[in-house]
């Protein structure tokens, strides 16, 4: 399929050569320009493919092996323990807390990013003066290295000198420092989960907006005008024209974002490290703390692999979208 499609354009020779390849294989096929091109091409591909195979493919398989072994840091020999690690994880209430928090975190933050991103995208596609500057400023959260901006938020969420609390207390929205009405953002379970989600939203909403803008600007204005002429209201145009037309790109953007959100450990690790009392523990931090800090590689691998069922459907859907768009 793809071979014919790939060769069908500028080079009518390619499929034909392959078709006769079986017959005249003896000496001549390897000398044909096609064969040389293939050899050249796969040689060029080899380094990248090998690198990725060695450092993504093999480690992935290796993590499956780790997950069914009792491997730990500093112990070179590991025994096969079957599904023991998974069983231990499933029986551990901390694991289930982490699963719940991961789902709440990803879904909640995803919805917020979607809403904020859509609103921002609609504002930014309007023509107005200073649009480029505004755009450049608004995307800053996404472009700053994540560990850097999380440190800034950690300072803003400080238990005593939080600038957010300063502003809120000046507005008389919260009580004095030390009183129960003084929010300790990273120290109170519900607030802590909200805070880590908020930082993820802060970092991700510009990305949603830019992806949506890219989708919106790809809609020919005539189609929207046609909708206007036919008397469609703004909401109708949004639902019946804009949403269907930007759906593919919207899907790709949110799938990417979800994959990164699901697997990001730095926000939670730096802000709360899962605390207080597991209230913000997510699967990535649990895997890190089990696998590296406690040194139980096997247990950690089992926990991080339990993210895979969440990631796999997204990856399959992305794969299908990427393939469908080709021809």
């Amino acid at each position: 399929m793809s071979q014919i499609a790939a060769g069908g354009g500028p080079s009518p020779g390619a499929p034909a050569t392959v078709a006769v390849g079986g017959r005249v294989r003896d000496i001549s096929w390897w000398r044909t320009p096609t064969a040389r091109r293939y050899l050249f091409g796969y040689t060029l591909l080899a380094p990248a493919v090998l690198y990725v195979a060695l450092l993504v493919g093999i480690p992935f398989v290796f993590s499956l092996y780790l997950a069914v072994s009792d491997a730990s840091v500093g112990v070179p020999v590991a025994r096969f323990v079957g599904l023991e690690n998974f069983k231990a994880a499933l029986e551990n209430s901390a694991f289930w807390t982490a699963v719940r928090n991961t789902v709440v975190f990803t879904l909640g933050a995803g919805i917020m990013k979607g809403l904020l991103g859509t609103a921002l995208a609609f504002l930014l596609i309007q023509p107005f003066k200073g649009r480029r500057v505004v755009r450049a400023l608004v995307v800053i959260p996404f472009t700053l290295p994540i560990a850097v901006s999380v440190l800034g938020w950690k300072w803003m969420f400080d238990s005593q000198f939080s600038v957010i609390n300063w502003a809120l207390s000046r507005l008389n929205l919260i009580g004095a420092y030390g009183s129960p009405e003084w929010p300790v953002w990273l120290g109170q379970p519900a607030l802590a989960l909200f805070s880590v989600m908020f930082v993820n939203v802060w970092r991700g909403f510009p990305f949603s907006a830019i992806v949506l803008m890219a989708g919106m600007t790809s809609i020919p204005p005539e189609i929207i005008d046609a909708g206007k002429v036919d008397g469609a209201t703004f909401l109708q145009r949004f639902r019946k024209i804009i949403v269907p037309m930007i759906a593919p790109i919207l899907f790709i953007g949110s799938a990417f974002d979800t994959v990164f959100t699901l697997s990001d450990l730095s926000i939670v690790y730096l802000l709360t490290n899962g605390g207080p009392d597991g209230a913000t523990e997510i699967l990535p931090t649990l895997a890190y703390n089990t696998g590296i800090k406690a040194g139980a590689l096997g247990r950690g691998a089992a926990i991080s692999l339990s993210l895979f069922p969440l990631l796999l459907p997204l990856m399959i859907l992305l794969l299908r979208t990427l393939r469908r768009r080709q021809y």
Binding site: Q3, A5, A14, Y38, F40, V49, F60, S263, S304, L322
Partner: peptide
């Protein structure tokens, strides 16, 4: 270079970008 399976190989390589560090 119009290689056989080029498109699939390309997508395959790109998909590894989605295998997250946490795994």
């Amino acid at each position: 270079l119009r290689l056989p399976f080029a498109e699939n190989l390309g997508i395959g390589i790109f998909m590894t970008y989605l295998v997250p560090g946490i795994i």
